[in-house]
Design a protein around this nucleic acid. Structure first.
Length: 647
RNA sequence: GGCGGCGUAGCUCAGUUGGUUAGAGCGAACGGUUCAUACCCGUUAGGUCACCUGUUCAAAUCAGGUCGCCGCUACCA
């Protein structure tokens, strides 16, 4: 068997339902897959779900469900939603499957055997008051950077020696310019690696859910470590035959999970085991939803399908075509370097101008002329030189764009042939040729039809149903072989053409009253974020007496203002009973000053005061950490007098 | 704070290794055409290429600095 062209998306976390970010990534992968198939490659397109996190178990319990039943349910939602967007994956892996568990354990075992995992103890300087680990080089005069006492500690866990892979990784990145795309992201990765990679904790106490560490059931493999291995697990590894599927030619993902995971941890893991690295990692930017606030509970992947349904209704186009229109929009604007903002106005406008006016109308008028002037079948004659060149250029530009996975540019290249066609028709004016019985007429009509046939082929990976519809109107069978695109052979003389029928009925755009307020909710991360290392390490039990040392009280925020020179810190004046304190908290990412003022909070009042950015902080607010690393402040269930003790 | 990126016509953006009148798409205005889904084609936009100072015969394109925005990273009691 020959090596397949392997394309992956991240596996999506089943803690929530599919959203816009996952749709964008998966669409990009699908376009890549369809393109490669047309080029004659055997493609292996992999996606799946990530189901082993502790959060999953907790979410299941909260929903009153058995974890397995819970993940079955959500995983199937993902599995079912993609075909609805004409996304054709070849394999769907779930991390709860035996094939994945076997691969993870074997992967772990090999790393252990090769000495890349050290077990049982983490030794290092530890700042007890901040519960943070420090490297020798972090210390200042034998104290933590904050001036606290540090002690040498040991923690029980498994650690991956990622630090030893910084150099080989840098060498690989230097030697393979296309390893990380786009360039901006690659620069980020390089600077991240240059400042030194730390060993990572790759296990945690077994909560009864997850993949046990081989030979040690008290621990499960840490979710991220586990999740990344799906890519190789799906190839059948460690069983023979995996070489036909690995390495992946391209691994698509959102930019949030590129630097820390796919471009460092993942390749380091592969190097450790001795497996080849993927050829290219692409981290795209976000398509932010503007214009309308997104309901978090709904989940945003519904948006593309709802958008399609709504478009279909408003424009009376076929639902299939509407879904293609959504695919087109996403492909044409697929953000790479910078995020872009989606608005309904822009979507409608693009539908009308690019799809209805340019492509749809070009097909429509060309067919109408074919019926009127040359009897409704594909004429012979030779395709004119300027058309030949425009076709060749569009095709070549598409190919060039796809080398670096610039789907937006590829889409533009496909459109260039349509734009050419409209100009060409205008210049050659077939109606005038017909009037004068000009012998050039058949050749001109044929040139026009070949442009359309080319457009059909170029557009096919992006809009498969639309391509079929174009082929049908051209009376031809779908053009699925890339090498045939633009050739005389793709357009058989004498083929009967259908009567023209608009594929994209125009939308009647009413003037919008006034632009709605732009809301740009933070995109949800594509998959599990890695928890801070200190969370991992502090599994140590404490006694009730230990806990009693911590004095917690209810307080109320009186004033709040950002700390200058910091992007996360907020300076707060908090009233706690009789006293009033200044507290500095790193919560600006999640809360504005207005959010905070007059809010009740829980404060640790006997924490040693410290200076943050030169501002004195006399305590600490209690907060949970959300998936993005933002803060979720704890608040009494109902109003309690300021100063009330908490235990 | 460190590193990186960005700041070009009303909007979205292209602008290779510095070199004639700075480009495309959309919107707008005007004109043309009639095959077509009132579509398409053309012309027009006189933009301090964020700002300042340099290097050079010549800079949007290089160097230094300033301002603004963003990303990564650090800090986040």
């Amino acid at each position: 068997m020959s090596k397949k062209y392997t394309i992956t998306t991240p596996i999506y976390y089943v803690n929530s339902v599919p959203h816009i970010g996952t749709a964008l990534t998966t669409l990009a992968a699908d376009v890549t897959a369809r393109y490669q198939k047309m080029r004659g490659r055997e493609v292996f397109f992999l996606t799946g779900t990530d189901e082993n996190g502790l959060k999953v178990k907790e979410a299941a319990e909260k929903a009153g469900k058995d974890p397995m039943a819970f993940v079955d349910e959500i995983s199937s939602k993902f599995k079912e939603i993609w075909p609805g967007m004409f996304i054709e994956f070849d394999d769907f892996i779930r991390t709860t499957e035996p094939r994945h568990r076997i691969a993870v354990q074997e992967f772990f075992r090999i790393l252990q055997e090769k000495g890349h995992i050290y077990t049982g103890t983490y030794e290092g300087w530890y700042d007890v008051s901040s519960e943070t680990f420090y490297k020798e080089s972090d210390l200042v005069d034998g104290k933590s950077p904050d001036g606290n006492e540090v002690r040498w500690v040991k923690e029980d866990n498994y650690f991956f020696r990622m630090s030893s892979f910084a150099e080989p990784l840098m060498a690989h990145i230097d030697a393979n310019p296309n390893f990380i795309l786009p360039e901006t992201r690659k620069n980020e990765v390089v600077s991240f690696i240059k400042q030194g990679l730390r060993d990572v904790c790759i296990s945690r106490a077994n909560p009864g859910w997850g993949i046990p560490v081989p030979g040690d059931d008290s621990q499960v493999v840490y979710v991220w470590f586990d999740a990344l291995i799906n890519y190789i697990a799906a190839t059948g590894w460690p069983k023979p035959g995996w070489e036909d599927y690995w390495p992946a030619e391209v691994q698509w993902m959102g930019k949030d999970i590129l630097t820390r995971f796919h471009a460092t941890l993942w390749p380091a893991m592969l190097l450790g085991v001795g497996l080849p690295l993927p050829e290219t990692l692409v981290g795209h930017a976000w398509l932010l939803m503007g214009g309308e606030k997104i309901s978090k509970s709904k989940g945003n992947v519904v948006a593309p399908l709802e958008l399609a349904a709504e478009l279909s209704e408003r424009s009376t186009c076929a639902l299939d075509v509407a879904i293609d229109a959504v695919r087109f929009y996403m492909a044409a604007t697929l953000p790479v370097d910078n995020d872009s903002v989606f608005t309904y106005e822009e979507f409608d406008r693009k539908y009308n101008t690019d799809l209805a006016n340019d492509l749809g109308n070009a097909l429509n008028r060309s067919l109408a002329m074919s019926h009127k002037f040359v009897g409704g079948s594909v004429p012979g004659g030779s395709v004119e030189e300027e058309a030949v060149q425009a076709i060749a250029k569009a095709k070549a530009d598409f190919e060039t764009a796809m080398v670096t996975f610039r789907i937006d540019h590829a889409t533009d290249a496909a459109w260039s042939v349509v734009r050419f066609l409209n100009k060409y028709i205008d210049t050659r004016a077939p109606w005038a040729l017909a009037k004068n019985n000009d012998p050039a007429l058949p050749g001109v009509i044929r040139s026009m039809l070949l442009c359309l046939r080319t457009a059909e082929g170029l557009v096919r990976s992006i809009m498969p149903k639309t391509a079929d519809a174009i082929a049908a109107q051209l009376g031809s069978s779908p053009l699925t072989d890339w090498s045939q695109i633009g050739t005389e052979g793709s357009l058989i003389e004498g083929t009967a053409l259908s009567q023209p029928k608009p594929i994209f009925p125009r939308l009647e755009l009413t003037k919008k009253e006034e632009p709605k307020k732009m809301e740009q909710p933070k995109p949800q991360p594509t998959a599990t974020p890695i928890p801070a290392q200190k969370e991992e390490a502090v599994a140590t039990e404490i006694t009730i007496d230990d806990f009693a040392k911590v004095k917690l009280k209810v307080g109320r925020v009186l004033e709040a203002e950002p700390v200058e020179g910091s992007d996360k810190l907020m300076k707060l004046q908090v009233v706690i009973g009789e006293e009033r304190r200044q507290i500095v908290a790193g919560i600006r990412k999640s809360y504005s000053a207005e959010d905070l003022i007059s809010r009740q909070v829980i404060v640790c009042v006997n924490l040693k005061p410290a200076k943050l950015r030169g501002v004195e902080s006399q305590g600490m607010l209690l907060a949970a950490t959300d998936a993005d690393g933002g803060a979720i402040l704890l608040q009494p269930d109902k109003e309690a007098p300021e100063g009330t003790g908490v235990k």
